[in-house]
Design a protein around this nucleic acid. Sequence first.
DNA 1: TCATATTCGAGAGCAGTGCTCTCTGTCGAG
DNA 2: CTCGACAGAGAGCACTGCTCTCGAATATGA
Lengths: 254, 254
Amino acid sequence: MHTRSDIARAVLSFRYTDPMNAPIPARARTARERARAELTAEILAAARRQLREDGAALLSLRSVARELGMASSAVYRYFASRDELLTALIVQAYTEIGEAAENADRPSASPEERWLAVWRAVREWSLAHRHEYALIFGTPVPGYVAPHITIEVAGRMPLTLARICADAKRSGGLNPPSGPVCPPEAIEPAMLQLLPGEAFDPDETARLILAWNRLVGIIGYELHGHLANVTADDALFFDHTARTEGAYIGLPFN
Amino acid sequence: MHTRSDIARAVLSFRYTDPMNAPIPARARTARERARAELTAEILAAARRQLREDGAALLSLRSVARELGMASSAVYRYFASRDELLTALIVQAYTEIGEAAENADRPSASPEERWLAVWRAVREWSLAHRHEYALIFGTPVPGYVAPHITIEVAGRMPLTLARICADAKRSGGLNPPSGPVCPPEAIEPAMLQLLPGEAFDPDETARLILAWNRLVGIIGYELHGHLANVTADDALFFDHTARTEGAYIGLPFN
DNA sequence: TCATATTCGAGAGCAGTGCTCTCTGTCGAG
DNA sequence: CTCGACAGAGAGCACTGCTCTCGAATATGA
């Protein structure tokens, strides 16, 4: 049974063990360190496989141990708890969805093309990794608090969207349509400088937040079946959503 | 361990047992039937309590049985599986969020007031019932397919939004701003007549779908912590979101 | 009214889980 | 070469969902 303090401890020990920041040390001095790094990676890979196939709910430390032919207690030498293993998988998922977004972004293209390409890439990744998506954007594990490691890597995907808008704005291509203006007090001041050297005003920031929320939300609806019998062509509806949200943020769609 | 067929069977037996449609029969002929109905309700109430306090992940049939002072095996006389119990709770949650929306809607008020009131009511209910919210809009149980009972009751909340728009439209108060137009093929044709005697065109329907998705999505962001360090005043940001989405659908906000 | 059939509760039991503890062997640094 | 840190295995605890059996209580038909 998990309690809040259990999980907090697990997260802390995870930060200490830190198997993510140094999965395979560049220079593994001793054979033991090398073996440890390799086994850590193997455990993570096996867990990843089970996550992809069966989802987080059915992922168990024991089955991972079985797959690697080791005693379940031995796995605890590498991950102090199941939650710690989950945290590592969460970091991986955030990283991958962020990379999917970044890799899809071609700064030489027009802002509209970039916007659509990134949205589609994020959707593609999510459809291909529904369980990873659920892990990071679905119901959080009870009592689970995201360790600080995750919040940095979680920003890569939305920051890609912000960069496109910043570039468009710099060339005068960001003209949001009129509508209700977001009260500045609603936005965390630190959010106004989320790109170095690039200032968004509160309303622009709010539009960005909503676009990011939309991207995640509409994919969630598709993945979780809320669009069944609602939309007839999910890809088409998604593209329309991307364009709608792009237009809302001020990109010249239509 | 749950397999798809297991769950399908459980859902079917649930539909047969049908403890929701007749929780307490008006005229319980025999004492046995009366006792059965009462105990079913008690189990459901205890499960509800545990769900509210600890969330679905920590809800176990055994702890429900313990709370009621009965053997765990006895509970299976009333609910064929844990998933069946969860399904009953899902139906309850959908019903309640739908009622929260409907009760907040005052048809005599202006469409903008109605819109905002319903949005706020849904948010209030969700904040007060975060685990129930997670149950219906969060990550679905692996392999779980929503039984048909749920899809009807799931529509009450979005239909409340649709009714407001239909009323506004009838009095000429629905004027959506221009923007990308949704291709008709993207929308399921049946969705165009979701209100009896009220026809929405595909683009209006798409805007409705997006508004419904936004309402659920922005609440999910708030509940799951994705707005931490992003927004400074969640209630204020939510109101702005409601207005923005209302304006997008064509209500005269600002 | 009485025998029969159905229902119900309890208990034991199976297979699985997360996690801890102990014991033994191995490896690495002094 | 010795000693301490580390890694693996195994047993064990408490918990889970779920099944089966076995009496006891209850309803039903004759």
